[in-house]
Amino acid sequence: MAEPFPLVRHEVRSRTRRRQRLTSPDTRLHLRTSTVDSGVVLISVDGEVDLANRHALAEALASAAADPELRLVVCDLTRVGFLACSGVSVLVEAGADVHARGALLRVVATETAVLRVLDATEQREPLGLRPNLTAALSGFVAPPERPDTAPTLAHLRTALDAAVAQANDLAELCGRLAERVAAVDAGRLVDDRGEHWKPADALADMVEDLRVLQNHLVTGALLAAPAVEDLGHLRDAEPPS
């Protein structure tokens, strides 16, 4: 400028924009597949990936790889708290399949537990690990074909959908920061602002501010979600011939 369901359910929004949401029978794992741009697929994973539910992730990746116009698959693991070696093997196998089709697989991960597994299996580089969605999508999400004209509804929906995903990610980050700041021992802090500064009060204010920001971001994402849904049902009128 990324719900509990039966095992597989497709929701076709348009020819160029679709979503597929999956829930494994193991309720610890939720998947959402979105077509970000032509040939660019985003799979968002929420929960834990292990031997019991790896097949759900494998199915989502296989479905994405079946796109004849595929250029990039991004697997977003930022909401994954646990990734077993069996889950890593699914990603490795999917990466080989995607590469065989002349496309790329990139993984986004920030959780320490997930990064440790990728380090232990030496898969950071082979899986194209990126620190965030922006970096993962870089070079693959094409700009509007006519930048001098107003953006189409499809472009607006894509941008808003990405903004909602980023708002949720930032909200989660604020929550984690608030927890870490709340756990800081103010009595052990050193600062050069003078005796008038009260570390405990300052930390308490910071925690409160982070919580308020988190709530605003979550609320904003919730308010924007219906607009994303509605835009998915609209089409730009064809220009008169």
Rank of each mutant, 00 (worst) to 15 (best):
R235W: 09
D236A: 14
E172D: 12
A237I: 09
H30T: 10
R32C: 03
R17H: 08
R32F: 03
A154I: 14
E111P: 07
A204L: 10
P4V: 13
T149P: 02
E229V: 01
S24K: 04
L173N: 07
G128L: 10
H216R: 14
V41P: 06
V12L: 10
R101T: 01
G175V: 10
A64N: 00
L234T: 12
D46Q: 06
S34Q: 05
R116G: 11
T78E: 11
R235L: 13
A65D: 00
G95Y: 04
D46H: 11
E125V: 15
I43M: 00
R193G: 02
R9M: 13
A136P: 01
A58M: 03
V164R: 07
T149F: 06
A224K: 03
D67R: 00
L70N: 02
V8S: 15
L105P: 00
V12D: 09
V212A: 11
V49P: 00
L83W: 11
T33V: 11
V8R: 14
V218G: 04
R180N: 09
V90D: 02
H99F: 07
A183W: 03
V181L: 11
F82Y: 15
A2M: 01
R54N: 01
F82W: 15
S34T: 00
P143C: 08
F5D: 07
R116Q: 10
R235C: 13
R211Y: 00
A204P: 06
L7Y: 15
V117A: 00
A120E: 12
T121C: 12
L31D: 04
L61K: 04
A237G: 05
A109E: 04
A136Y: 06
G220V: 05
T27H: 13
Q166N: 07
T149H: 08
N168Y: 06
N168S: 08
R130Q: 09
R211A: 03
F5M: 09
R13Q: 04
T78Q: 07
D169A: 14
A136R: 04
P4F: 13
T121L: 08
V212M: 05
A2N: 10
R17C: 12
D185N: 01
G87S: 04
G175N: 11
S14H: 06
A136W: 05
S63N: 05
E111M: 13
A64S: 02
D191Q: 12
M1Y: 08
E3C: 14
L210A: 04
A171F: 07
L57E: 01
V12T: 09
A109L: 10
R211V: 04
G194K: 12
V164G: 01
N53V: 00
V207M: 07
V8H: 12
L170I: 12
G194R: 11
V92F: 05
R28G: 14
L153A: 13
P25E: 10
P6S: 15
P240L: 07
